[in-house]
Amino acid sequence: MSIRTYTTRPLVALRQYPFDLAVVSVAAIVAYAIVATASSGSALRLAVTLPLALFLPGYALTALLFPGTETRAATRAARPVQWSGIDVVERLAISFALSLTVVPIVVLVLPITGWGLGAEPIAATLGGITVVAAQLGVVRRLRLSRADRFTVSPVSALERRRESGPTVTLSTIVLGGAIVFAIGALLFGLLAPTSAGGYSELGLYTEDDDTGDLVTGDLPAEIAPGETASVTVGLENQEGAHTEYTVVVQQQILDDGEVTDRTELDRLEASVPDGETVTTETAVAPTPNVELEEPVRVGFLLFEGEPPNDPTADDAVVDTYFWTTVTEDALEDE
């Protein structure tokens, strides 16, 4: 008899395992798997990213914080109860709020770890938080009596509403309206066409002498007369379509903040598929008419297709620049 009781306990525990937390855990794992394998920008990847970022972590944390169901007034009168439950609308609202709190924290923490900031590390972290919090929520929920546990059961919900009457609190109405508004605003932002239609990014890099990696913030501040400085230009295409780019490299002389002279130093062309980044190099060489110790701004103007005859920063899709000085001191530093 004792052996039979021992062998049936795992089955009993399995039957008591909360259905909603099982679904949340499996959904988080599946969402990470799709993010890790699906191509960037695919509809399937977007479809699983939304619940993973906006709902699943918060729901699991809510289950951990509030394992009980909504406490009824009759129950409170009958015996002392430790409050650990909320109603369904409050649970959904808190789930969205906690998810929107967790995601920025993850985005801030990941860059200082070895994982870096990317779609897969973010999905893995959010999925891990969801699964761990859900399992801890299972433990807390199963420690409560059946009557006090929160369960996802339409029949139980109808019975509770029948016993408590058709009253609806103002907080429930406000929370329900807030959820509907938030979801509607999110869907509008995702589905409504925008005037920008996407974006392109332009970055400047140099090669680290020790590691050979491309780094930012180490652009040449000094160039010797007649010498060149190698600069790597990075182009990222998020326009939603394959795009042909042209980068115009200019030597710019300024007076009181206004460009008074422009000289084209180079012109780079690149064909970039949607969602990808390419790099190309240019050798920056100020013209001989630049005086020694005179600060020169080297501008990089990005255009889609062919640039105009007299390209300026106002015409460019995006532009960037760095300052350098033509000096003989650069020869001594080499």
Rank of each mutant, 00 (worst) to 15 (best):
L175T: 09
G203F: 06
P311V: 03
E207R: 13
L331V: 13
R140S: 10
T5M: 11
E239C: 00
A43D: 15
S271H: 14
V259H: 00
D209H: 10
A123H: 01
E276K: 12
F66T: 01
G85D: 12
E281I: 14
V23C: 04
L292R: 10
E236W: 08
P121F: 00
A224K: 01
R91I: 10
R76N: 09
V233H: 02
T327V: 02
F188Y: 13
F300Y: 08
A224M: 09
G114F: 02
A133Q: 05
V26M: 11
P111Q: 03
R267P: 04
R141A: 04
V106Y: 02
G305R: 09
G212W: 08
R267S: 04
E269K: 09
V152W: 15
A33W: 07
L191M: 13
S156K: 14
F188H: 11
L219C: 04
E293T: 07
S164I: 06
A78H: 09
D315W: 06
E222V: 14
T260F: 14
A124S: 11
V272W: 05
L65R: 07
L219S: 04
V48I: 05
G128H: 01
L136K: 04
L331I: 12
I179S: 03
R160S: 07
I179R: 01
R141T: 11
V233D: 03
T172Y: 04
L126W: 01
T320S: 03
D329H: 13
P311L: 01
T167S: 02
Y321C: 05
T69F: 02
L331D: 14
Q250M: 09
S84Q: 14
Y205P: 07
G212I: 06
G299P: 04
S39M: 10
V131F: 02
A97R: 06
G176E: 00
L158C: 07
S2D: 15
A192V: 11
D319S: 15
V215R: 12
G184P: 08
Q238I: 10
V30G: 10
A60E: 00
V103I: 13
E306S: 09
T71M: 12
T49C: 08
R162F: 14
L175C: 12
T263I: 01
G234K: 01
I94Q: 03
E306R: 08
P193V: 12
L144I: 12
T206M: 07
A221Q: 15
Y32R: 01
P307S: 00
L214K: 10
A134V: 01
P67H: 09
T206Q: 09
V132N: 04
I29Y: 04
A270H: 00
T324R: 02
R161Y: 09
T62E: 08
V278Q: 12
R267W: 03
R45Q: 10
D255Q: 15
E276C: 11
I94M: 08
A36V: 08
L98A: 02
T263E: 00
P288N: 09
P225W: 08
M1V: 14
V89S: 10
